[in-house]
Write a protein that binds this DNA or RNA. Structure first.
Length: 306
DNA sequence: TGTTATGTTGCCAT
DNA sequence: TATGGCAACATAAC
């Protein structure tokens, strides 16, 4: 579920109602381990009485900046959700934690699969996290040249490398497949073997699919919801993700989409538009370069970004 | 009814 | 160091 656009959607949805609020209580529910080995009972006293000054995002991590300089870090992993509710609401299904705020509302963390975590980070730990994660793909500092440098000398498959959070922050299975489709790159191309033009195309595609995901308030494939429980709308714009299993037609060329496994993850792509072998420079443009993409996100075009 | 797949990440072995 | 495989968990779909 939650990749960069989904986490950003949660962040934006909570900003107005949460920033400035005081944590008045922290209540364990069904899974105290959600706050790590210490458990909720050990961590809660450090949080009660703290005021939330900001909510920021780093990759797929949400960081609630507290007034003592520490951070409350939330990672949704596969099925986590963070929802603001009135205090008198009954616990959500799979609710593991309720953070009670002044003003009468709670931040409720729930997670069917118990992979997600809500951790209290001292400043050193937040800095370590920041250093461990790669650049933010939507920041101005993430240039095509920087992507090229990161990919150089990587021998793994393109998809596997893009999923590495140390290389670029925030990409997951859905947006990688979508970005590779827009860039017309086969997921199993060696990551270090892209031409400069291909790298620029990939750079542009990554930013475009992420921006589109945010604009549509996230992709709800099954369980994603924003801070008020609302589903996203980006699933309607997906070109390949989830479409390979039944061989649905490629939106660009019409050929049946394919499903395979790369880096242990389901991988959807078009075998014609995303060839495994890089097309030679002097070959005439094949079918992959011809048709316009009906649902192409703004900003994806066919020309190099000069 | 059993088997399989699921959006993430960390740990382990190579 | 980089890379690949798998477990963590609960449920839905086949």
């Amino acid at each position: 579920m939650p990749e960069l656009p989904e986490v950003e959607t949660v962040r934006r949805s909570l900003l107005d109602a949460v920033v400035g609020r005081l944590i008045v209580n922290v209540v364990p529910r069904s899974f105290p381990g959600v706050m790590g080995p210490e458990g909720v009972d050990a961590v809660a006293p450090r949080l009660v009485g703290r005021r939330i000054k900001a909510i920021r995002r780093r990759g797929k991590y949400l960081l609630f900046g507290l007034d003592d300089g520490t951070d409350l870090m939330v990672h949704l992993r596969m099925t986590g959700s963070l929802v603001l509710t009135d205090r008198d609401q009954p616990p959500l299904r799979f609710e593991h934690l309720a953070i009670e705020l002044d003003g009468g509302r709670d931040l409720r963390f729930s997670d069917q699969r118990k992979f997600g975590r809500v951790l209290h980070l001292l400043p050193g730990a937040s800095q370590a996290l920041d250093r461990r994660i790669g650049p933010e793909p939507l920041d101005a500092g993430f240039t095509a040249d920087r992507l090229a440098a990161a990919l150089a000398n990587r021998r793994g498959k393109l998809k596997a490398v893009l999923l590495d959070q140390g290389l670029v922050a925030g990409l997951g299975n859905i947006y990688v497949d979508e970005a590779l489709f827009h860039a017309r790159l086969h997921p199993e191309r060696p990551a270090g073997g892209l031409s400069p033009t291909e790298t620029r195309r990939l750079h542009r595609a990554i930013r475009a699919v992420l921006r589109q995901g945010i604009a549509n308030r996230g992709t709800t494939f099954s369980s994603f919801q924003d801070g008020y429980g609302a589903a996203g709308g980006n699933q309607a714009t997906l070109n390949v993700y989830g479409r390979g299993r039944k061989g649905e037609p490629c939106p660009r060329c019409g050929r049946s989409l394919l499903l395979t496994t790369v880096a242990g993850r389901s991988t959807h792509f078009c075998g014609r538009c995303q060839p495994l072998v890089a097309p030679s420079l002097d070959a005439p443009a094949g079918p992959s370069g011809e048709a316009a993409i009906g649902s192409s996100p703004a900003g994806v075009d066919e020309s190099p970004s000069r």
